[in-house]
């Protein structure tokens, strides 16, 4: 297994300490709570939509450095994106963190999200990194019920 320095990138540590868009967003068009029952992490993702675009997105909750920074970076990246673009990014993000550690990272498509590529070396942390993404995707699907990683 790789050194944890590969996991705890400086950007990740920064977003953990100073999470962006870390507040409730009411009223909103959809919100979903994501739970990881094994470690107790829980985040609610709030989304405002305007003409098929994510006009605003925010989150609240508590969790580890990986889950919290992932939620923070996600909200930064998705603001202004279309629903289709958001879904595509989730797919790309998921592919990156579940890929073989030697696989090349599509840096052009992933942009800032590539800081999470270290998660590939730590498979038990995949659920942390994807928790807020699953909640976001579920919100875009029009669900309002909590989702769980289990």
């Amino acid at each position: 297994m790789a050194d944890t320095r590969a996991l705890y990138e400086q950007v990740i540590l920064d977003h953990n300490k100073n999470p962006r868009n870390f507040h409730a967003l009411e009223p909103c068009d959809c919100k979903v709570e994501g739970l990881n029952p094994l470690c107790g992490d829980h985040f609610t993702v709030y989304v405002r939509l305007e003409g098929g675009r994510i006009s605003d997105i925010a989150f609240t909750g508590a969790g580890c450095a990986i889950s919290k920074s992932s939620a923070s970076v996600m909200t930064n990246v998705l603001k202004g994106k279309t629903i289709a673009e958001a879904r595509m990014l989730f797919t790309k993000f998921h592919q990156m963190i579940t890929a073989n550690p030697d696989a090349p990272v599509d840096e052009a498509a992933l942009g800032k999200l590539r800081v999470f590529s270290g998660v590939r070396e730590f498979p038990v942390r995949i659920k942390c990194a994807t928790l807020a993404w699953h909640a976001m995707a579920s919100a875009l699907d029009g669900h309002n019920n909590a989702i769980s990683t289990e």
Binding site: T4, Y8, C39, C64, K68
Partner: peptide, 29 residues
């Protein structure tokens, strides 16, 4: 400084095996 999950991760890197979580005792948490 850190969430238990992150503490456990750093400790693991040093070969130290501990548990991080609610220990099947959520009411205590």
């Amino acid at each position: 400084a850190a969430h238990p999950h992150d503490v456990g991760q750093i400790l693991d890197e040093e070969g130290v095996a501990v548990r991080a979580g609610h220990h099947c005792a959520q009411p205590v948490m």
